[in-house]
Design a protein around this nucleic acid. Structure first.
Length: 280
DNA sequence: AAACAAACCTGTGCGC
DNA sequence: TGCGCACAGGTTTGTT
C-alpha cells in the first residue's frame, strides 16, 4: 500500500519521535517479518542501540544505528509503523515491538497483516550481500532529485510502456500504483504509451507531473483509502485521496475534462485507471 | 529486452 | 446471514 509519500511521512515521524532514543528491549512475535535474518539477529542488533537518523530510498526506510549497523524497514502492501505509550494494547498482527527509553516510555510497533513487510538489521559494509536490492534501486525523485535530463535518458534508453516503466523500482524508486496513475493523468499521457515515443514537450510534462504529484502528496501526508490501512506513526491518516483524479475511479466521470468516463485496464499486472479523452 | 503470470499472505467487499 | 470469488498501496521469480 504505502508508496513514496506515505513512506516519507512515516520517515518524518520516526525522525521526530524515535531518533535519539535508546532501544531497551525488542520483541519479535512473528518470524516471517524477520525472515531475511532471524529474530535473534534483530534482537541482538537493536537491543541497547540508538537510531541516529532515519533516511529513505524509494519505499525503503533506512535507520542509522550508533552501533554502525543499519535498520531497514519495508512496509510492502500492508505494513504500518506506529508509536504508542508503553503497555498500550497492541493491534492484531503486531510482529515487532521496540521498547524506547525516555519519558514517557513508548513502544514502536511494526504491524503487518499480510506479512509481506520486512524488518532487518544489516551491516552497511556488507550491504551488497545482506541488502542487495538497495544497490539496484533507481533514482528517487525526492531523495536524489530527478532532473529532466535524467528522465529523458531513462525514457529514451528503452522502449517500454510508461506504466510498468514508472513502477519499476530499478528505474525510478518510490512511485507505486496510485501515484503512477495520478502522475500520468496530470501529464496527459496514456499508461500504455511507449517511453521512446515521447516528444521533448511530453517528457517535460511528465517530469513536472512526477515532482508535483509527489510533492503535493507528501504535503498531504499521503493517501489513506477507504480501508484506512495507511496511517502515520501516530495513527493519523493522510488526505491526498481527496485529490485523486483517476485512481480507483473507473466508470466515474473524469474530473479534469468532465466529458469522459475513467477507464480501467491492466498493465504490467496492475490495475490502471486513466481518462481516454485527456491522456494521449 | 519487455511483457506476462504466479507466488508470497490476510482481509474486505461484492454478488448470489 | 453465509459462501465464494475478486481484488488490494509491493516485489521477486520464472516463462514466453
Amino acid at each position: 500500500m504505502p508508496e513514496l509519500p506515505e513512506v516519507e511521512t512515516v520517515r518524518r515521524g520516526l525522525e521526530a519521535q524515535v531518533v535519539g532514543r535508546r532501544i531497551e528491549r525488542v520483541e519479535v512475535g512473528r518470524e516471517r517479518t524477520v525472515r531475511r535474518t532471524s529474530a535473534e539477529a534483530l534482537i541482538d542488533g537493536l537491543t541497547g542501540v540508538t537510531i541516529t537518523r532515519f533516511g529513505r530510498r524509494g519505499k525503503y526506510l533506512i535507520g542509522e544505528l550508533d552501533s554502525g549497523d543499519r535498520l531497514m524497514i519495508h512496509l510492502r502492501m500492508s505494513g504500518r509503523v506506529l508509536i504508542a505509550a508503553a503497555g498500550t494494547e497492541r493491534p492484531p498482527h503486531t510482529h515487532v515491538v521496540l521498547h524506547l527509553a525516555g519519558e514517557p516510555p513508548q513502544e514502536m510497533w511494526f504491524v503487518d497483516p499480510r506479512t509481506f513487510g520486512e524488518v532487518v538489521v544489516f551491516d552497511p559494509n556488507n550491504a551488497a550481500a545482506e541488502m542487495p536490492e538497495l544497490a539496484k534501486l533507481g533514482i528517487d525523485p525526492v531523495t536524489d532529485g530527478l532532473t529532466r535530463a535524467e528522465l529523458t535518458a531513462l525514457l529514451l534508453g528503452r522502449s517500454r510502456q510508461l506504466k510498468p516503466l514508472l513502477l519499476d523500482q530499478h528505474v525510478i524508486a518510490g512511485i507505486g500504483n496510485i501515484y503512477c496513475d495520478e502522475t500520468l493523468h496530470l501529464a496527459k499521457l496514456r499508461p500504455d504509451r511507449l517511453s521512446d515515443s515521447l516528444s521533448a514537450r511530453e517528457i517535460g510534462r511528465l517530469h513536472r507531473a512526477i515532482h508535483e504529484v509527489l510533492a503535493q502528496a507528501i504535503e498531504a501526508g499521503g493517501s489513506t483509502l477507504a480501508d484506512t490501512q495507511y496511517v502515520d506513526i501516530e495513527g493519523q491518516g493522510g488526505w491526498f485521496q481527496l485529490h485523486h483524479r483517476v485512481y480507483d475511479r473507473a466508470g466515474q466521470r473524469c474530473l479534469t475534462c468532465g466529458r469522459a468516463d475513467i477507464v480501467r485496464i491492466v498493465t504490467g499486472g496492475r490495475s490502471t485507471c486513466f481518462c481516454p479523452r485527456c491522456q494521449h
